[in-house]
Design a protein around this nucleic acid. Structure first.
Length: 490
RNA sequence: GGUCACGUGGCCGAGUGGCUAGGCAGAGGUCUGCAAAACCUCGUACAGCGGUUCGAAUCCGCUCGUGACCUCCA
């Protein structure tokens, strides 16, 4: 398989030609959600970005094992000494078992993924399901001397590690700068050094989520699960690790340290970081409280939203921006995306009505190559979309008879949309209200449109226009074409 | 304060040394009873100031502005 896929590697800060370690297999790990609250749109963007990565790798013919974890042990709320984690806290607030919280939000997360047509990963491991693997990893790191135990907790020894391997490579930091900028922790830390981080944490008696370990009852540290689970399912060395930009430091940096500390191997060759979704220029985040849930976006039921937008409109909107750039959320941009997406899908539908000719004056191969080139260039979805618009224009020209295409070319053009719009970009034909709503609809529409046709033949245009306007008000748009009147129900 | 990004036409957003992405909005036109849709034509934009170069939105420097990370976060 000869490929020319280039991926921007955050670790080397360069675009690199993608060469899988074990052709035709590709290992892809992406940091998943922490399931203690509803996912918001910013989270969706990240998973969407890697959904397209996954889809394209598969499209290229790779056998991809895509691992995306569920973090169901909450990260600590305050600092390492508080002993309270978010899932435990939420459980207390809602008077539920921690696993009830986890269950509830995991289901919610999966629903959201489905709504946006984000494919499920090949493996979706949970942190609580891999306590043993995490304990084993802690043991290994201890065995190598890169961690120490204090009072039932185990901390990663960053300075010791840094003496042997560079710490901070991914995020471009060096530990002296970090040291200088570490704020003073409240209370006395057990850590020997402020830079150290917990890989196993002792559970206070009140802590609900706890497991026995060689160091007493406790729970795994913040960053350990990804190291343990990526190693388990993808090996000590694998191809790609993805996640949001905000995880680069400290989370991913710690992951690398843990991997190297345990096995001597650093894990992924390529790090990919998706950028943030912003609202009025500010990062959408849980703590800022400026997030939208997918429901709010779809229904438009939010004070910052002027209307609702369909999931595929949102998908299109997000993919019109490169994954590594910040994307600012605005009503104007969403509305523009809605129209653009409608134009694209209509062109695709219109292609079914195109008449084939004996000759062709369209260049389908070139379009296809442009699609490929766009995606090969670090998954450049905005450029791919621009090519799809060219293809849409071509389709419309053929459909309207302005340009000619053979049956073969029409089929090839359809295939481009099939492959790139649906398979790679993951758009999904949205079920129109026409189907399923009522089996009476076609008959009724036939009746109404025939009445209008009769009115038109009688030059009774006011009646004809009234019918059109009234239908419009009901959300039914009609369009007179040489072949007759078409209708579309929103 | 440290580290790192970014600043593109009315809006969103690609590009990153010469070959003027794309979408939305806007103007004119073709078609149509009128619309709608589609198609055709139209915008010479790259924060500011210097520098390098035959040539810079693209490289370098400075200034201004915005943001992210440094603490849980996709």
């Amino acid at each position: 398989m000869e490929q020319s896929l280039k991926i921007y590697n955050t670790l080397t800060r360069r675009k690199e030609t993608f060469e899988p370690i074990n052709l035709p297999h590709v290992g892809l790990y992406v940091c998943g959600p922490t399931v203690y609250s509803d996912v918001h749109l910013g989270n969706v963007r990240s998973f969407l970005s890697f959904d397209v990565v996954y889809r394209y790798l598969r499209f290229l013919g790779y056998k991809v094992r895509y691992v995306r974890n569920i973090t169901d042990v909450g990260h600590l709320v305050d600092d390492a000494d508080s002993g309270e984690d978010k899932i435990a806290e939420k459980a207390r607030l809602e008077a539920l078992e921690p696993m009830e919280i986890v269950q509830k939000y995991t289901i919610g997360f999966h629903d959201v993924m489905r709504i946006f047509n984000i494919l499920p990963p090949s493996v979706e491991p949970t942190a609580t399901g891999h306590i043993i693997e995490q304990i084993e990893m802690v043991k290994k790191i201890l065995g190598k001397g890169y961690a120490y135990e204090v009072n039932g907790s185990v901390y990663f020894d960053v300075r010791k590690f840094n003496a042997d391997f560079p710490y901070g490579k991914l995020s471009g930091r060096n530990i002296d700068e970090l040291q200088a900028n570490t704020r003073a922790l409240d209370g006395q830390s057990e850590k020997r050094d402020a830079l150290d981080f917990a890989i196993w944490k002792k559970a206070e008696p009140s802590h609900i989520m706890r497991w026995p370990s060689p160091w007493g009852d406790g729970f795994p540290g913040w960053h350990l699960e990804c190291s343990a689970m990526s190693t388990k399912y993808l090996g000590e060395e694998f191809d790609i690790h993805g996640g949001g930009m905000d995880l680069k430091f400290p989370h991913h940096e710690c992951e690398i340290a843990q991997n190297v500390g345990a096995s001597g191997k650093s894990g992924p060759r390529i790090w990919m970081h998706g950028n943030m979704l912003t609202v009025n220029g500010r990062k959408m985040s849980k703590s800022e409280g400026n997030g939208f849930t997918p429901e709010e976006l779809i229904t438009g039921n939010h004070k910052l939203l002027e209307q609702g937008y369909s999931p595929m409109t949102v998908r299109f909107f997000m993919l019109q921006c490169h994954y590594a750039s910040t994307l600012d959320f605005s009503n104007d941009a969403l509305r523009a995306a809605e129209k653009g997406y409608a134009r694209l899908t209509e062109a695709i539908e219109n292609l079914d009505k195109a008449q084939a000719s004996d000759t062709s004056d369209i260049d389908v191969d070139k379009l296809r190559q442009s699609c490929r080139a766009a995606m090969d260039d670090d998954f450049n979805t905005p450029v791919l979309i621009s090519v799809l618009f060219e293809a849409a224009k071509t389709a419309n020209q053929v459909q309207s008879g302005r340009r000619k295409a053979t049956e073969k070319d029409i089929t090839a053009l359809k295939k481009i949309f099939e492959d790139y719009a649906f398979e790679v970009l993951g758009f999904r034909r949205e079920e129109s209200a026409a189907e399923g709503d009522s089996s009476l609809t076609p008959g009724l529409m036939d009746l109404v449109l025939n009445l209008r046709k009769a009115a038109k033949l009688n030059k009774d245009f006011s009646t004809a226009d009234q019918i059109r306007d009234r239908l419009n008000a009901l959300g039914i748009h009609i369009k007179d074409t040489p072949e007759g009147t078409e209708y579309k129900i929103n």
